[in-house]
């Protein structure tokens, strides 16, 4: 007879499914990028221990259903080379994923491929994964290359949106206005013309880089530094689904990593100890403590670039069903 500790199973990234006796294994792929050689390994698990099917998760992982609970040790052994190759932090080698609360860190395809992306989203996602996984607390973090937000960071606890600060060399500009048209039609209409040259409204500019992409003479180029917009506490769910709001604009990589890590201490301190399954979305905790208390914890020891704008107080809207 089966005698299972479901709490332990869930923390080991196995799901308690609706099918009696069967579980599903979740394979995390930080940044959503993997080498094709890993696909046969996932196929092998699905065909040997699962039901031959693989579900592509919304967080860019794989979920392998139809696995018997009794085969979890064998599946963990087969997961090991995938865990090694993707350089996942692991507390006990050979035992699979040792946490599941902090979800796979996902990313849009980013500047490896996409012409709009302002940075390598995969690399930043992997770096973040290294900093925060494994952890049982329920954190969702996503990275997107530009303000188009294809990965939908605004539905995450932490969304990181790439920004470049456009550099204008006026002597290379002949006034074709390709940038002005692109900004007006594809972005936020932050550019205007004065004496045939371009004026950038720095308060409106979202750092999407459309001006750089559309400039035919390299009058517009990217800043050497990449900046980020950090949006926080978006969520789906039954009670109050909502989009994340801006917290930092023109922020740096270091500041963002520090803030996310600080949030773990904040959640540990304030989480509802009676929360079902020990799981409570961060946003609801902030709703309870107030934003200023969260900000105090989040900004502890954070060094900001002089360009960084810190928003506050932050208010969220969304739909209330409660």
């Amino acid at each position: 007879m089966l005698d299972l500790n479901t709490k332990k199973i869930k923390k080991n990234a196995y799901r308690v499914t609706k099918v009696r006796g069967e579980t599903a294994s979740r394979v995390r792929v930080p940044g959503g990028l993997l080498t094709a050689e890993l696909l046969p390994l996932i196929q092998n698990i699905a065909e040997t221990y699962g039901n031959g099917r693989i579900h592509l998760t919304t967080r860019q992982g794989f979920e392998i259903p139809g696995i018997k609970y009794t085969d979890m040790d064998a599946v963990n052994a087969l997961l090991q080379p995938i865990i090694d190759k993707l350089e996942i932090n692991q507390e006990i080698p050979g035992k699979g994923y040792t946490s599941a609360g902090t979800r796979n860190v996902s990313a849009c395809i980013g500047s490896n491929t996409c012409p709009f992306a302002t940075y390598n989203t995969t690399n930043f996602a992997k770096k973040m994964e290294k900093e925060i996984f494994p952890n049982d607390l329920h954190f969702k973090v996503a990275f997107t290359g530009c303000a188009n937000d294809c990965i939908k960071t605004r539905m995450h606890d932490f969304g990181i949106i790439g920004m470049t600060e456009p550099q204008y060399e006026k002597e290379r500009c002949m006034g074709c206005q390709a940038c002005v048209k692109a900004c007006k039609k594809k972005s936020v209409d932050a550019l205007s013309v004065e004496n045939y040259r371009i004026v950038r409204n720095t308060e409106k500019c979202v750092g999407c880089g459309e001006c750089v992409i559309n400039c035919p003479t390299r009058a517009w180029t990217r800043s050497p530094e990449t900046y980020y917009r950090l949006v926080i506490m978006g969520r789906t769910g039954k009670r109050n689904p909502r989009l994340a709001e801006d917290f930092l604009v023109w922020a740096t990589e270091d500041a963002i990593i520090k803030i996310v890590k600080n949030t773990y201490a904040y959640v540990t301190n304030y989480i509802d100890k009676e929360a079902p399954g020990g799981k409570e979305h961060i946003g609801y905790i902030i709703d309870r403590t107030g934003f200023e208390e969260y900000k105090k914890w989040a900004m502890e020891g954070v060094e900001l670039d002089p360009r960084t704008i810190v928003k506050g107080p932050v208010y969220w809207s969304g739909i209330h069903y409660d």
Binding site: A117, T118, T164, G209, V212, T221, R222
Partner: peptide
């Protein structure tokens, strides 16, 4: 060579 000066990132 103007590093990172191109139309697209990097």
């Amino acid at each position: 060579r103007f590093v990172g000066d191109g139309t697209f990132t990097s």
